[in-house]
Amino acid sequence: MASAPESSMRLGMAGGVLGFALGGFFDGILLHQILQWHHFLSLVPGEALRDLRMQILADGMFHVAVYLIATLGLLLLWGARRAMAPAGAGGRLLGAALLGFAAWQAVDVVVFHWLVGIHRVRVDVPDPLTWDIGWLVLTGLPPLALGLWLRRRPGPPSPGQSAGGPRGVVAALGLVLLVLGAAPVAALPPAGVTTVLVLFRSGVTPDQAFAAAIAAGGRVAWSDPAAGLLAVDLRDGGSVLDLYRGGALLVGRSAITGGCLGWTRLAV
């Protein structure tokens, strides 16, 4: 049986990983999908990687990675469930989640924006550094400060003075519901949109791509010059599964894309 400090450490790790995943969901949903300020690989040099198909594919893979991190956090939380009983466990869990959220913002800006340089908060402005710093201040410092306060807040004078079980369980359930709610939101297409973007595998010819869209019961509303990326209207009950059978690599409505295809302005 784990000691009290070890159990508390496991709970903190679970909360931190879940908060880190929530930071990724927040970033992807707001910056990639709603505001569309950048793609994950917006600033990567090279004609092949700057291709729109690769940009959208990278956004989808980014969300897949965040789903995996969230799954790891949920597994860690289940493994640390016995640590929710002591008084103050709920506050420590939420504090760890807020620190994880802040950590995501710092890692994203410092590593991906400044060190690796694959994207910035906004890539279409003359001074992207100002936007990077502003984003980090607005979304990183408040959760960092609140998380530290919750983690350092003193508990009861003696272990038997109060019971923390119910509050710890409520905090854990709330965090789980938040993560489980963010994941499907990241995969939803915009409300009322019946058009999906279909990214076809390399080697699928334009004729094959159009034929696959028609065979799936869809109507082609837009195509890139190489027909590797099609906007297909499925309002009449077309089949996403048939699109995959016809050579699609990613379809905008599928959860695997994280919604990045469905939200892109090309689908309008």
Rank of each mutant, 00 (worst) to 15 (best):
G28R: 02
L250F: 14
R219G: 07
G192C: 13
V66C: 05
D59S: 08
H39P: 02
W104S: 00
W131F: 10
R50N: 08
V109T: 14
G24I: 00
G16F: 15
A83M: 06
W135I: 07
H39D: 05
V121L: 10
S7D: 12
L243S: 02
L57D: 04
D224R: 12
I69H: 00
R92D: 08
S162A: 15
R245K: 12
Q55E: 09
R82F: 09
V220L: 00
L98T: 03
P159V: 09
W135N: 03
G262N: 09
M84P: 02
A48F: 14
H113N: 04
L43D: 14
L230W: 03
V169L: 15
G252E: 04
D59P: 03
D242V: 01
A103M: 12
A70Q: 06
W104D: 02
A83H: 00
D59Q: 09
V121C: 06
Q208V: 05
W114H: 15
P45T: 04
D242S: 15
S3I: 01
L141G: 08
H38D: 00
G28Q: 01
E47G: 15
A213F: 04
R219W: 10
D127Q: 11
L199Q: 12
L230F: 07
V193M: 15
G252F: 06
A96N: 06
A83Y: 02
D51P: 06
F62N: 11
A87R: 03
M61N: 08
M54H: 13
A163E: 13
P184K: 11
L18E: 02
G218K: 04
Q161T: 11
M1D: 12
D236F: 12
G237R: 06
G252S: 06
I214Y: 14
A187Y: 04
W114D: 10
V169K: 10
V111W: 15
I133V: 15
M61S: 09
F20C: 03
W114Y: 11
G203W: 04
